[in-house]
Each structure stands twice: as structure tokens, then as C-alpha cells.
Design a protein around this nucleic acid. Structure first.
Ligand SMILES: [Zn+2]
Ligand SMILES: [Zn+2]
Ligand SMILES: [Zn+2]
Ligand SMILES: [Zn+2]
Lengths: 606, 606
DNA sequence: GAAATAGGTCACGAGGTCAA
DNA sequence: TTGACCTCGTGACCTATTTC
């Protein structure tokens, strides 16, 4: 009997889709008045609203509100109060079919609950391991199967995919994961169910999140085979290096990725450093310690602030988690661990960080096309306006103060836009597990060090090579090449564009980009890091996260990984170059934007 | 609630492309039956058409049609009627992909049509068929009206302003800030002296004056401040009121300044509160508590952060400091105490806050002149560019996304500039001794409450009445009147300008302005303050600081004080007016700057 | 083919009813 | 009063179709 949910149609006997009634703990029959609740509580609430006299409580509001059996005596006041406290309200009514995101949320909640109770019961670990890719869901699986008979095929898959998504999140954004390439690494046999309507994106997109998690234990063998095959096919030995850390995934024999510290011995290391030194000699003409120290204070402040805030969600389950050998490249991390990191970063990013990655490709294209057409129209109307060269502009500006071609305005708002996002970005870094625990000096070094790399990752998707326009979401603008030339020195612009194009060629998903951001933020080879090893550890785990995402996406993950690492290496050089280029024009920029208050900009980017 | 737009394919998380559902305000999912509307309203309309029996309304057609969460109150009839009124109709169906240009064309065409038919028919309801191209249905007429809801309302508002009568409709309330009818509570004798011709301003002391008299003496419980003889020189009876707090320095007999809390007993108080509620109802269309709570969290966060940081310099020498009777008006404070407050605020402001007060007059003048000349040059070269009216701009923008006259850019960078300074501003408030000790909720109320007053104090010196240009230091720009019109609604701009001019007439020093900022930030009469008395105490001490500065400056300090208080009173009305004006255009602004991330702006200024 | 919408489908909850 | 059960309007999602 307890398996049935009453109210509304009698639900079939099946495991609950919803978390239990928030009010009394019984099986919820639905989402009533804004709260997952049982039919009884729903009815009670409705009647309570209709009532005129208030309830009274004898115990002074201390009554427990439990499931029906125990409820017999519980007072109405406390029950009603609880309803209200939980947010039940006519204003919270939501009718009609569930949204995917709601369903996802429910499932997640349910899962969590299960997890907790399971943890309490403390099962023996051996059997658990065997059973699965993940334990959380034997039920869900059963659940799916039991629903099967009565749902049309289509819904089945949705149901499954949804319940699998552990990417909770407000955005819930199914489409985020993989678009066309949804050749996920799941055997077709699993996905086929749905194959009929493959075209509709909303399906195959609906989730990757962790298809992993939903897959019944029996299938995991299939998976492994699949992996092995893939890996075997790869056969490529990829190597990517940036800084003095080498990521040398070796695929054939040991099937392990090794993280080794080259201790500054690698050739690349020397090369880069020399080049670095040269660039620096050129680029930092006047600066001295004093100014540097001062500016550090600013950043320091910021970092400390953020540290203070949002400090609750520490997770310390870290410890056990038996290393299940399901990851195709077999790392010291479990898929679950990696997944959690990924989720944490994605969640924060999706809900808080605002940049070009907040838009999909189509939207960005739309923007650039629009601006381009506008620009073309202007050109045909007013003729081509020849761009002033930088020197000439400054000559005029310095002598007359005239902003002849509007570049001061452009530059100011560009910098303002960037500046405006900085605190969010820092908070994002703080979401990287372990980041906050680093010494403040290291945090500062890392943040400073990755600024340019972070920026290009934020923005590169806004570049459209055909129209040669660039969208800057934080600024709310799209600039034509002509305008870009006003903002950036020519050589810097070329570098930006080259970098953007290179990144675009990788055809990364937004998820991957986000993880990449974290990866560049934790480069263990920034100069003078106090605790390189800690940083390296974080970094390495993040790299594993990236690998996981790549694998999920299917299609030659290792090859892609190699490409990405290669681009990262390039990006490092790019970063140094941009910094030097900016430093060269720093005084000009300061003069132009001196009226605007942009402390962080100079601290981070110059 | 989510960022997703339903119906049709699931849209991506990105910011809305479309204006909200014209019917209910929810995210529109497309252009259904000729109107931008959400999936729900689309479905509802469809069902309604299919229906045979008509709907009936119980409230006589007065139901508000809101988003789903609020919808329970609204009957189907009213919803359907609204659909019809907006022009939803099978005849208005548009299928298939559309180009931007087509949309513009459509909209403009329709508008034209509307004008023509209006002209032809002149109120007679006659044959509508004749005027139609293809969608000549009566609905489409109404549809047209609905396209331009803002403007008519503004006209209405202006009318009301001029007539000075207060109606009971929502929009009528802004009457409170009437330029012509500015009620000052200062006797003419004082104001006349210096500001020369107070031309348009009439000073009638009637309403508040008498109200004040009625207040029972018993209610004054807060601070009693003794004046000494020096004050007697003034001979004038000064009275100033803003909000429901009265500052009544009485100089002759009792020689006391009474700060009394009127306890919300005045009519003004009630009026204002109601009005506030209305404005809120208007301005926060989609959601109430939840959203509000959320937004408060944002601010809260900010305030808390700042609280954590810089917390060392607590001073507790407070206690003794023998009251030396050196102050000419003899307050309970010593000059030394006041001086310290002043110094603290000035120091912080000078080193951290960046606004027009960071520049001297000459510099500001130079800026405006420069821009003005530039502007003139452009005008002579390209001819006068007639400014697009707001309505037309938005029509084009909404349908094509084109930022035809660059106002989106202007607006975005304007808001960005303001947004960028907000954290500094909050820190400034935190420098006010005692501010940090206020309950967080009060801090929030105060910060929110004074936003507009603070802003005008920050910026007013940037206005140059001759060239009619305004410098915005935080933005690094100076805007011509033409540009200003793009950023602000006309009536708001006028209010800004009037206020700026009024402030300029006071000829304040930067120090005085800074103290004034603190004064407006601690207005003890903001709604719902938990600890009014604490705030009042701080406020009062700040007023004493101002007095001190005035005295130091010599030259009729009390007279000047009176003028300043008078302007503050006006400023309060100005603030309310501006807020309402902004609220009216909030959705437009959000649409234009939706690409930029400006959480605080909406929280503080709308 | 891509982008958009009309119309269809059906999972859902509000509110009503009624027996206990 | 309670809560199981019902009816019907809703709205999230889907498909077919149109337009570019
Ligand atoms: Zn319950
Ligand atoms: Zn009780
Ligand atoms: Zn709607
Ligand atoms: Zn009605």
C-alpha cells in the first residue's frame, strides 16, 4: 500500500518519482501549491486556506508533523504552519506537466535522500562495488523498467535520461552537452531505444550528465569493451607540454596518464623561459616593486573577501571512494569524484559567470551577423571610414583631447565590462576545490597569471571569422574588426584572433571550456608559486575532469586531448605576448581611460 | 521562473531574445497569433477559440493577468479578453522563419496602417475592413495600440504633473515630484537672499507646516538638542521636512532642535507608502517575495563582505571628550568629535570614491566644453541628427535588434560605469561611524533608499547648463544633451537637470557634498527601518558635521543650511520621481542591456 | 535545411465530492 | 475533518507545416 501514491489518478505501483511529502513524509502525490506533498496534505492545506478561524496549538508550536499513522493527534496549527513555512501558497501553484528541469531536480533530491539513508545504514562495501557503476540507482533502474509498460517509448528515454542527469542546476540546460556529436561512448544498444526520433535535439542532448550513472551494472562490461576498442584505435602517442610540467599520457602499455614534474629540465622549459625573459625585458620598462606590491594588496583584499563569503559547502567525503577501474584511462580518481568537481564548476559557472559562453553558437552568430550588416550598411551609406592609425590618434588626442574616432569610448567600456566581471571570475576560481586552501600569495599569482588565458577562453566563441566581428558579452557589444583595431594594438589583435581561431577549431563544448578555464587557472608552473605541488594536484585532477568530458563526448577523446593541450601550450605563449603588448601601451590606455576607475584591470592584465 | 522559454524546442538558457509575453509577462516563446507570447498563453488562446461557451468573469473584468504563479486570481475571461485586446487572432498568424528585416517591415507597416486608419476614421468605429491590407481585423488595430504602451502613459503623466492633481490610478502618483510646484518648507526670507531669483519655485508652507503643528509633543522622544545664543541671531523659524521626519530647528524661544519621529501619522506618510506599494507592484511584475528576497541577498552579500573586511579601526574613545562649548550652535557633540567624523569620511572618499567630485570645476568645464565643441563640429559637418523618439527606437530594436542610434551602447556603458562603482560606494557608507553596526536589513534599506540621491550628489557637478552637457566620471565620458536623451526618459532627464541646477546653486564645496552623501545615506525615515533611532542619531551627528563645515566656511551658515535642507527635501521627491520613472522603463532597459551583467543596478535604482 | 509556429498530446494539479 | 477519488483546465513538449 505504501507504494501507491494517491490523489490524482492512482499511480501505478512503482518506486517513487518524487521525493516524499515535505510536510508529513508520506509519499508525495505531486507538486501541490509549490511543494512536493501528499494528497492529504494538499487537501488539508486547501481546507485551511478556506477556513476563517485560525487553528490553535496546545504545545506552543512544538508538535511533530509525521506520516498519517502518527498524525492522528498532531495539531492542525502546526501542520498548517509547516505548510506555510515550506512555502505552500496559492501563489506558488504550478500546473501542468513537469518541466525537465523540475523532474531532474526531483530525481536528484530523491537520489540524495537515498544516498543519505544508505550511508546511514552502512552497508558492506564489497558487494556495493561490484554492483555498479553506481549504486545510487539500482532503484532508478528498476523504476524505469517498471514504468516502461505504460509509457510511450519516447517518454521512456526521457525519463531515463532525466533521472540520470545529475547536473541539477538552475539552467538545467540539457543542450549543453554535446550537440551533433552525441556519439556518446555508450553502446548503441543502450541509446537505440529512442533512435526513431533522433533528429529532435532535445533528446540526444538531454543528457549526458551521467549517463554513466544510470547504466545498470551488467552493461558496464560492454562499456569497458567499448573503451578498450577506442583506446586501441587511438594508438597515438600524444604529448603536450606547457611550462615545466609535462602531461604525457601513455596509452599503450601502462594505460596510465602520468603527471611528472620535470623539475625545469625539459627543453621546452628552457625555451619558454628565455623567450619569456626577453619579452619581459622589453615589456616592463618602468615598473617597480612598490607599485607591484601595492596592486597586490588590492587583489589580496578581493580574494580574502571571497574567502569569507560562501564558505559552507565543504565536502569531506573525499576519503574512501574505492578506485573503481571504470575510467578508460584509469587514473587515481573515480569517475564519481571527477564528476563532482565538474558539476561544482559547471553549476557555479552557469549560474554566475556571464560571458560569451553564456550564449550558444547560433546566438553569437546572430550578433555578429547583425553588427556586420549594420556596419556594411553604414559603409555603403557613408563610405569606408578609414581607420586612424594609433599614433595619429594619440597625437590628436594629446593635443586636442578629441576622441576623434570614438576609441576612447570603446576602450573605456571594454575595460569596464571586463572589470565588472572580475569579482565573479575570482569567485569562480574559488569554486575549484582546493583553490581556497592555497596560500593567498599563490592564489594571487594564479589569478594574475591566468588572466589573459581566462579571458580568451571566455570570449573566443564570440569571434566570427567570416564577418570578422567579435562579440563581448560582458560588455553587451559586438565590435567590428575596425573597432577592434581601435581597442587593441594590431599585433595583439592578430594574436587574439589567431588564438580564437585555434580554439574554435577544437570545437569544444561549453562544459569543456569551463573546465579549461579552471585548468589554466591552476597552472602549477607560474613563477614563484609557494605550493606548486598542491596546485599541481588540483591541476591534475582538473585535467582528468577534462578527459572525462572528452571521453563522454566520444570521437577520439585522446586525440582531442592532445590537440587541446597543444593549444594550451600555445595559449601560454599567447598570454605572455599579450601581456607584453598591453604593457607597451599601458600608458596610452591609462591616459585614455584615466577617468574611469579600473584598479583591477591594470593589476591583472598589464 | 526559469530562464528557459518553453513551447517549441526548449530554448537555450541565454538571455531572452524576445520581449516578455504581452499577455502575462512570462518569457515569451515566440510570436503566436500575432503577438509575442508565452507557450501557455498561446495554448490558452487556442483552447479559448475552440470553446463554445463564453467565459465569465466574477470581478467585472478587473482581474490582473499575470504570470502563472499569480494566475490563480485571474479569470479566464479576463485572460482571453486581454489576448484579444492585444490582437491575438488567427488572422495574425505568422508561420515560418522570418528575417529581421521582415519583422521590422511588418511592425512599421502595421504602425503606419494604424495611423492612417486613425486619421481616416477619427473616432468613428466604422468599417475596418476597408483599411486592411491583409490583417485588417479589429484585433490588429488594438494590437497596434499595444505596441506602444509606454509613450501614451508618459504623456498622461506629464499632464498630471502639470495639473498637479492626484488621481488614484497608479500612474498618477508621480505627481509628487512636480517641478513647478516644488514645495519648500523654508520661509522665503531665507531663500530669497542668495539664490537670487527663485523664479519658478513657489514656497508654500501649508501642508506639511500644519501637519507638523498637529503632532503631539509627547511623540518627540528622540533627540533633544540644545542651541545656544549664537543661534538667536538668525531670528528665523526654520522648518524642514523630508519624509516623515522633521527637522525643526527652532531658534527663538526654546532654542532647541527637535528631531521628532512622526510615527507615520502624517498623511504624506500614508500616501507615500501606498504609492510605493503601487510602484512595486508595477515594477516587479513577474515575481514578488522570492525575487525580492533574492535580490536582497545580493546586496546583503555585498554588505556583509565589506563588513568583514576592514574591521580594525574601531574607535571606542567615544566616551569622555568633555563637551567644549566651542560650537556656535552648541550641540551635544564637540567640534573634535565632529571633525573626526568628517575626516574619516573625507579621507575615505578622497582616496577611494571616484566620481565627478574627484575633479575640480575647471576640469569639468573643460570636459564639457570639449565635448560640446566636438558635437557642434559634427553637427555642422553631418547636419543635425534628429534624435529618434524612444518609442520608435524600441520598435525598431525589438523587431530587428538594431541599435540604430547607439543608445544601447550608451546605456550599457552608463550602467556599467555606475555598477562598477557600487562596491566603493557601499564601502563609503560603511565608513560612516555606526553604519556598520546597524542591522543588515537597515543597511540594505538605507543603501537602496538613497541610491538616486547619492548619484545626483556624485554627478551633479558634471552638468554644464550652458553647453548642456554632462560629465560622468565613473564612465569616463561626457554626454551631450542629445545623448542624454537616449539614456534617460525625457521627464527623468528634466528632473535630473533641475536637481543638478538646484544643487549647483548651493555652490557647495566638495567636503560638504561628501558629508551630504552621508546624510542622505542615513535618512532615518526610510520605510521600515528596524532601528530608526540609531539611524536618526547618526544622521543627526552628520547634520552637525555639515553645520560645522558651514560654519567654518563663514558666510551665513544657517542660511545656507536652510537652503541645503530645502534642496534635500526636494531631492527626496526627486528621488521618488526618478525611481518611478525608471521603473516605468525598466523592461526596456533590461531588454537593451540584457547582455550585460548588472545585478546591482536593478536592485538599487529601479 | 534551418528556423519558426500552429496545433496536437497528455502528464499534471486545483478544487470539488463524498464516505468514513 | 479527513483523505481517496474525480473532473477538467493547463502548459511542457512534440509534430507537422510553412517560410526563408
Ligand atoms: Zn503529507
Ligand atoms: Zn501544535
Ligand atoms: Zn503569457
Ligand atoms: Zn476576470
Amino acid at each position: 500500500m505504501s507504494d501507491l501514491e494517491y490523489d490524482g489518478q492512482i499511480k501505478k505501483k512503482c518506486l517513487p518519482t518524487l521525493p516524499p511529502c515535505k510536510v508529513c513524509g508520506e509519499h508525495a502525490s505531486g507538486f501541490h501549491y509549490g511543494v512536493n506533498s501528499c494528497g492529504a496534505c494538499k487537501g488539508f492545506f486547501l481546507r485551511s486556506l478556506a477556513r476563517t478561524e485560525p487553528y490553535t496549538c496546545l504545545t506552543g508550536g512544538q508538535c511533530q508533523v509525521g506520516p498519517e499513522v502518527k498524525r492522528r493527534k498532531t495539531c492542525q496549527k502546526c501542520r498548517f504552519d509547516k505548510c506555510l513555512r515550506l512555502g505552500m501558497s496559492k501563489n506558488a501553484i504550478k500546473i501542468g506537466r513537469y518541466t525537465y528541469s523540475k523532474r531532474t531536480q526531483d530525481t536528484l533530491e530523491l537520489k540524495q535522500l537515498k544516498h543519505e539513508t544508505l550511508a546511514q545504514e552502512e552497508e558492506s562495501s564489497g558487494s556495493e562495488c561490484e554492483s555498479s557503476l553506481q549504486k545510487g540507482s539500482p532503484e532508478s533502474d528498476e523504476h524505469l523498467q517498471s514504468i516502461q509498460p505504460e509509457l510511450p517509448r519516447l517518454h521512456l528515454l526521457q525519463e531515463r535520461l532525466n533521472s540520470g542527469t545529475s547536473g541539477n542546476t538552475i539552467s538545467s540546460e540539457p543542450t549543453r552537452f554535446s550537440c551533433k556529436h552525441s556519439t556518446s561512448y555508450w553502446p548503441n544498444s543502450i541509446l537505440e531505444n529512442e533512435s526513431g526520433s533522433t533528429d529532435s535535439e532535445s533528446h540526444d542532448t538531454t543528457e549526458t550528465g551521467s549517463r554513466f550513472e544510470l547504466v545498470p551494472a551488467t552493461k558496464s562490461r560492454v562499456l569497458e569493451l567499448h573503451f578498450n576498442k577506442n583506446v586501441a584505435i587511438e594508438k597515438t602517442f600524444l604529448k603536450s607540454t606547457y611550462g615545466n610540467f609535462s602531461y604525457s599520457p601513455k596509452f599503450n602499455q601502462p594505460k596510465k596518464l602520468e603527471l611528472r614534474y620535470l623539475g625545469g629540465a625539459g627543453e621546452d622549459f628552457h625555451q619558454r623561459n628565455e623567450w619569456d625573459a626577453d619579452v619581459r625585458a622589453l615589456s616592463i620598462p618602468s615598473d617597480d616593486l612598490k607599485e607591484k606590491a601595492l596592486s597586490c594588496e588590492l587583489l589580496n583584499e578581493h580574494l580574502e573577501i571571497d574567502e569569507w563569503e560562501d564558505k559552507e559547502e565543504e565536502e569531506d567525503e573525499e576519503i574512501c571512494e574505492h578506485t573503481r577501474d571504470v575510467l578508460p584511462w584509469s587514473s587515481e580518481f573515480t569517475e564519481h569524484q571527477l564528476h563532482e568537481w565538474i558539476q561544482a564548476l559547471l553549476n557555479y559557472h552557469n549560474t554566475n559567470v556571464f560571458d560569451n559562453n553564456s550564449y550558444d553558437k547560433a546566438k553569437l552568430k546572430e550578433r555578429t551577423d547583425l553588427v556586420y550588416n549594420e556596419h556594411r550598411l553604414q559603409e555603403t551609406t557613408f563610405g569606408q571610414l578609414k581607420a586612424l592609425d594609433r599614433e595619429l590618434y594619440f597625437e590628436i588626442y594629446k593635443s586636442t583631447g578629441l576622441d576623434v574616432d570614438g576609441r576612447r569610448t570603446l576602450l573605456s567600456s571594454f575595460l569596464l565590462g571586463i572589470h565588472n566581471e572580475i569579482s565573479t571570475v575570482i569567485k569562480f576560481f574559488k569554486q575549484i576545490p582546493g583553490f581556497r586552501e592555497l596560500p593567498m600569495s599563490d592564489q594571487i599569482l594564479l589569478v594574475k597569471g591566468c588572466s589573459h588565458e581566462y579571458q580568451i577562453l571566455s570570449l573566443y566563441r564570440g569571434w566570427d571569422n567570416k564577418t570578422r566581428c567579435m562579440t563581448f558579452s560582458p560588455l553587451g557589444e559586438t565590435l567590428t574588426e575596425q573597432d577592434l583595431r581601435k581597442v587593441f594594438p594590431d599585433e595583439a589583435l592578430s594574436a587574439h584572433i589567431d588564438m580564437a581561431v585555434a580554439l574554435q577549431k577544437l570545437d569544444l563544448t561549453v562544459e569543456q571550456i569551463i573546465i579549461l578555464k579552471a585548468i589554466v587557472a591552476t597552472a602549477p608552473d607560474r613563477d614563484e608559486l609557494a605550493s606548486e605541488e598542491l596546485v599541481a594536484a588540483i591541476h591534475w585532477k582538473l585535467v582528468n575532469c577534462l578527459l572525462l568530458l572528452l571521453w563522454k563526448q566520444g570521437r577520439h577523446p585522446l586525440q582531442k586531448f592532445g590537440q587541446i593541450m597543444s593549444v594550451l601550450t600555445e595559449m601560454r605563449k599567447y598570454s605572455v605576448f599579450i601581456r607584453s603588448s598591453y604593457t607597451n601601451i599601458r600608458s596610452d590606455v591609462e591616459e585614455l581611460t584615466g577617468r574611469v576607475n579600473l584598479p583591477f584591470i591594470y593589476e591583472l592584465f598589464f
